[in-house]
Design a protein around this nucleic acid. Structure first.
Lengths: 129, 129
DNA sequence: ATTTTATACCTAAGAAACTTATGTATAAAA
DNA sequence: TTTTATACATAAGTTTCTTAGGTATAAAAT
């Protein structure tokens, strides 16, 4: 696992984040993806997040599947099986409860970001023009 | 423990964050405070963070002290005991290594924020004029 | 043709970082 | 004199990951 991360004149360069940071945001990420894309299956979620973050966030399957099962047991998501040839996919969608949960969770994280930026005195990232 | 957190027309209202979010940022918070304030003792850190975040982030002592011991064992911080009457305070300061660590950690968190904002499609918070 | 890689699901042991509870002791306030 | 605030600490338990393993199908590479 690569964890090289050095500050270079205020340029943000990270290959991958330490797992402590990602820890706690997994449910929020999953719920938000389902909100934006309607339905997704587990493997698709890991690939999408990896692509969207340029490999900075990699969701392991050992973390993903137990979380999906937890969200389903909790009533935030449901699923339908779909067969692609002989291979099965479990397509997950948000329940009505999940649609509320995702708003709360994303909102909470947005607030958390603002608080942390103040606490750590983090300035706005200048857009790379 | 209060965990009421509801979205109200894009206004961020949170009484306290779920512990999962704060998890993973504790070392960064402590190191950055020591960087900005020179030296601090444990209890002072908990109070300062509580005040700076309007009670949104409360560092418990069960989390704080083991973390301080871990940072010290790791060589990022050192301490000097100071007696206020008969009561002892352990004033912590950054070591040279710690001064590098804090830059890396704050930088990593800043990068993480940007990635998560993109991933969760979070817009800039409008300043409450 | 066969081996490797990608897809797609899953669980279980162990580690990390917390919470909750508890303990000790001094100083200030009610 | 009791309660609250200050100031340190540890330990059991919980959550949420990582790491490692397992099963099986489909596509790509050798």
């Amino acid at each position: 696992m690569y964890k090289i991360c050095l500050p270079k004149n205020l340029m943000y360069i990270c290959l991958m984040y330490t797992s402590e940071l990602i820890k706690g945001t997994l449910k929020t990420i999953i719920l938000n993806l389902l909100k934006e894309r309607g339905k997704m299956y587990g493997y698709e979620i890991t690939q999408t997040v990896k692509e969207m973050t340029d490999g900075k966030i990699k969701i392991t399957e050992g973390a993903l599947y137990p979380t999906l099962h937890s969200l389903e047991k909790n009533g935030d998501i449901g699923f339908e099986k779909e067969y692609i040839g002989k291979r099965v996919r479990k397509y997950y969608t948000l329940t009505e409860q999940g649609q509320k949960t995702v708003l709360v969770k994303v909102n909470e994280f947005a607030d958390f970001i603002e608080t942390m930026k103040y606490l750590l005195d983090i300035q706005q990232k200048p857009s790379n023009a």
